[in-house]
Amino acid sequence: MSPRYVGRHTGAPLPDPDEPQASPRPRRQSRPGGIDRGKAKKVALWTALALCLAASIAVLVGLVRGFYEMDHPPGGW
């Protein structure tokens, strides 16, 4: 079997160890807003999760109150 297929599913050739690899782009130290992109994504995720949890709790409270009102009508039976 050819060495380029060993351990690979795509059949792409193995990288040449003598060939210089492209260096990754340097990351900027700070963004204009003062917060980096990763932290902004985490804050957005946790904010969205908190809002979703608050909405779910509000729906559950409404259901419990509705069922209570059905069992105990304001004018009585």
Results as ranks from 00 to 15, higher is better:
Met1Ile: 09
Tyr5Val: 09
Tyr5Arg: 07
Tyr5Cys: 01
Val6Ser: 09
Val6Asn: 07
Gly7Asn: 14
Gly7Phe: 13
Gly7Lys: 03
Gly7His: 12
Gly7Trp: 14
His9Thr: 15
His9Leu: 12
His9Tyr: 07
Thr10Tyr: 02
Thr10Pro: 00
Thr10Leu: 05
Gly11Ala: 11
Ala12Cys: 06
Ala12Ser: 11
Pro13Ile: 02
Pro13Cys: 02
Leu14Phe: 03
Leu14Gln: 10
Leu14Ala: 06
Pro15Lys: 11
Pro15Thr: 07
Pro15Ala: 12
Asp16Ala: 08
Pro17Tyr: 10
Asp18Tyr: 14
Asp18Ala: 15
Asp18Gly: 04
Glu19Asp: 03
Glu19Asn: 09
Pro20Ala: 11
Pro20Lys: 13
Pro20Arg: 08
Gln21Lys: 15
Gln21Thr: 11
Gln21Glu: 14
Ala22Phe: 09
Arg25Ser: 04
Pro26Gln: 00
Pro26Thr: 00
Pro26His: 06
Arg28Gln: 15
Arg28His: 08
Arg28Cys: 04
Ser30Cys: 02
Arg31Asn: 05
Pro32Ala: 04
Pro32Gly: 07
Pro32Arg: 01
Gly33Ser: 07
Ile35His: 01
Arg37Leu: 13
Arg37Asp: 03
Gly38Met: 07
Gly38Cys: 02
Lys39Trp: 07
Lys39Cys: 02
Lys39Phe: 05
Ala40His: 06
Lys41Glu: 00
Lys41His: 07
Lys41Asp: 00
Lys42Leu: 05
Lys42Val: 00
Lys42Trp: 03
Val43Arg: 12
Ala44Val: 04
Ala44Met: 08
Ala44Cys: 02
Leu45Asp: 01
Leu45Val: 08
Leu45Gly: 00
Trp46Met: 09
Thr47Phe: 12
Ala48Thr: 14
Leu49Phe: 08
Leu49Arg: 09
Ala50Cys: 06
Leu51Gln: 15
Cys52Ser: 05
Ala54Ser: 08
Ala55Arg: 10
Ala55Ser: 12
Ala55Lys: 07
Ala55Phe: 11
Ala55Glu: 04
Ala55Asp: 02
Ser56Lys: 05
Ser56Tyr: 08
Ser56Pro: 10
Ser56Gln: 09
Ala58Cys: 13
Ala58Asp: 00
Ala58Pro: 02
Ala58Glu: 01
Val59Cys: 10
Val59Glu: 03
Val59Ser: 09
Leu60Ala: 13
Leu60Gly: 10
Val61Tyr: 12
Val61Ser: 05
Val61Asp: 11
Gly62Ile: 10
Leu63Phe: 14
Val64Asn: 05
Val64Met: 15
Phe67Arg: 15
Phe67Ile: 14
Glu69Tyr: 11
Met70Asn: 12
Met70Tyr: 11
Asp71Glu: 14
Asp71His: 14
His72Cys: 10
His72Phe: 14
His72Asn: 14
Pro73His: 06
Pro74Phe: 13
Pro74Ile: 11
Gly76Lys: 14
Gly76Ser: 08
Trp77Ile: 00
Trp77Glu: 12
Trp77Gln: 03
